Simulated assay, not measured.
Amino acid sequence: MTVQLYARDVGSGTPLVLLHAFPLSSAMWLAQREGLAGRFRVITPDLRGFGGSVLGAGEPSIDAMADDVALLFKHRGVPRAVVGGLSLGGHVAMALCRRHPDLVLGTVLAGTRAGADGAAERERRLRQAERLERDGTVQVLMEEILPDLVGPTTLRQRALIYGRVRGLVQATPPQAAAWALRAMAGRAEVAGTLRDLRVPALVVVGGEDSSTTEDEARALAGALPDAEVLVVPRAGHLCAVEQPDLFNQAVAEFAAALARTSP
């Protein structure tokens, strides 16, 4: 069952749909809404259960989250868009490309990878989901997820950014986080299906990302027929939050080139 997503929708021009990381909300895209709305229509939904969106029913699934986003396109009157996603949002963006290719003008995949979870990572996610449901708090996210969201440069030099990320994690609904963890644990390898992608891709990774390595980002790009890679220096997993100006510049150039060549 699809869920109607809450979304912030600002600016005008070529639509740019940005899908947030786990375990945050569309609030993480503040610098993108401010920096890109002068050139693009920037739409930043809360994935199901996060921010202003309800969790709904159904088995945890990345495909279900992608179908939610496709429904958002319909409700917002968006025929096609450049779709970007970071971390969890990247997995949803890839599923959208596979399930609803006609909606996608191009895709930005940041801090994400094509491979499925290994056994140890899958078990870790399921254990975290069980603890979220048992405790009814996000303490496990604060202990085990938050430390890997930003890089050492941000920890040393960007106290305000780290504090904001910490606040977003603290605001995460435990049930939504558990659902999303189970969805990520159950996702399949997608490298094979990505070879059929008919649109260009920009693969972005933080140079200090301990969750998604540069090698994994390059492997993802290598699985795509038309992709370029950007390594964002002095940024960890949340490269769009840690280095927003560099991220925005790259996304703006990518999206503007697509807008010029699209029919």
Rank of each mutant, 00 (worst) to 15 (best):
G11Q: 13
T14K: 05
P15Q: 09
L18Q: 15
H20R: 09
A21T: 09
L24F: 08
A27P: 03
M28I: 06
L30M: 09
A31R: 06
Q32E: 09
E34R: 08
E34I: 13
E34C: 08
E34N: 15
G38T: 03
P45D: 08
P45L: 02
R48T: 08
R48K: 05
R48S: 01
G49D: 05
V54W: 01
V54I: 08
L55K: 10
G58F: 12
D63P: 05
A66E: 00
D67Y: 07
D68V: 00
L71N: 09
F73L: 07
K74W: 10
K74V: 12
H75D: 15
H75C: 07
V78R: 11
P79L: 06
R80V: 08
A81F: 11
G84Y: 01
G85M: 04
S87A: 06
G90E: 11
L96V: 02
L105G: 08
G106L: 13
V108A: 00
T112E: 07
A114R: 03
G115F: 00
D117C: 10
G118Y: 03
A120Q: 10
E123A: 09
R124D: 12
R124N: 10
R124Q: 14
R127I: 10
R127K: 09
R127A: 10
Q128P: 05
A129H: 03
A129W: 01
E130N: 07
L132P: 01
D135K: 13
